[in-house]
């Protein structure tokens, strides 16, 4: 590991003023992504700014009914918070399906939003990677890509976004609060992560020096909720395909539905085509499968990951079925 300077900050304005983040500086909270990548020599920050003392550890209900979550709330605390368990069970399930207890205790809400891909070529400084070193090429396209994305890919990058939490947040609906040298702004969660396109090195809408301070969840959607994660082993593995589903019923018909996907896409993926296909329709298995098909219309299969198109559809159909059962309960 290369040596870096470590600075601790006590206040948000101290954290965000005059930062060169993106350019030799990095924020650190739980460190579960950053330190791994520094040890692998994938990230080489000259300076690391420790933000763990900032007052961003609260979960509070806003007057309009939304839930405001401090960026330093740990994954464990968020997953087990009584309001989350009651009003956003899909988020709690997503969080608890990720990583291990030890990692969830360390990992923060803001850090989870910022976690980097597990693409092995990104994590290997000796291999070309457009995300790590723009213009060097994508090793995964013709390499081993069983774990890679089928949605939102480009000819420059097919790496998945690895988070479970973010998939739950996309389904629940959320807004990110960002603090920067030029003040505070809000970004819709769905718009925050960027598709790789021609610039896979640009992963999100965070301007230099900005820090995620809060995630605000939309007012609770009610309905039946479920997060289903499919993988090889039963725990401690990133999703091969996952689905967060929220279903509200009007009689036997689906009145409102939210579908988000993980493990199959280059960013936490809102499957609007699936939602549109199902909304207003009877909540039947046939319709769930039709919605699932709609989500993958534009999917691209690479040499080892065509199965993810099938698996992703299965995740959607099963998650919708189970969320619907809960909506009926």
């Amino acid at each position: 590991m290369r040596a870096f300077e470590l600075e601790s900050v006590e206040a948000i304005d101290q954290a965000v003023s005059h930062r060169r983040v993106h350019d030799g500086e990095a924020f650190i909270a739980g460190g579960t992504t950053l330190l791994d990548l520094v040890k692998l020599d994938v990230m080489q920050p000259e300076k690391v700014v420790d933000v763990t003392r900032l007052p961003l550890k609260r979960i509070e209900t806003l007057e309009d009914g939304r839930l405001k979550i401090g960026a330093l709330v740990s994954n464990t605390e968020l997953a087990k918070h009584e309001i989350v368990l009651r009003d956003y069970p899909v988020l709690s399930e997503a969080l608890l399906s990720g990583a291990s207890t030890g990692l969830r205790n360390m990992a923060s809400t803001g850090g989870n939003v910022m976690q980097r891909t597990r693409c092995p070529y990104f994590r290997d400084p000796d291999m070309p990677c457009n995300k790590r070193e723009p213009g060097t090429g994508c090793s995964a396209l013709d390499g081993i890509n069983r774990n890679h994305a089928v949605l939102g890919t480009s000819e420059h990058c097919i790496a998945t976004h690895p988070s479970d939490m973010c998939v739950g947040m996309v389904a629940a609906g959320a807004t990110l609060v960002l603090e920067g040298p030029d003040g505070q702004r809000e970004v819709a969660f769905e718009d925050y992560h960027l598709l790789p396109g021609d610039h896979p090195e640009r992963e999100h809408d965070l301007k230099p020096g900005e820090l995620i301070t809060h995630v605000i969840l939309d007012t609770p959607r009610g309905g039946g909720q479920h997060y289903l994660k499919l993988r090889d082993r039963a725990s401690y593995e990133f999703a091969l395909a996952s689905c967060a589903a929220i279903v509200s019923l009007d009689g036997d018909n689906v009145s409102e539905v939210r579908v988000a996907l993980g493990g199959v896409a280059t960013k936490p993926w809102r499957a609007t085509a699936a939602e549109e296909a199902l909304k207003g329709q009877p909540a039947t298995q046939e319709n769930f499968e039709r919605a699932a098909d709609a989500a993958f219309t534009d999917a691209v299969a690479y040499s080892h990951n065509g199965y993810k198109i099938t698996l992703g559809k299965q995740a959607i159909a099963r998650a919708l079925r189970d969320a619907t059962a809960r909506a009926r309960a």
């Binding site: 069983r146 090889d232 691209v300 299969a301 199965y307 198109i309």
Partner: peptide, 15 residues
């Protein structure tokens, strides 16, 4: 015995 070896209807490589 990876799951894809047991699955049906896997789309062909499109890239």
């Amino acid at each position: 015995i990876f799951k894809e070896k047991l699955m049906e209807n896997i789309p062909a490589v499109q890239s």
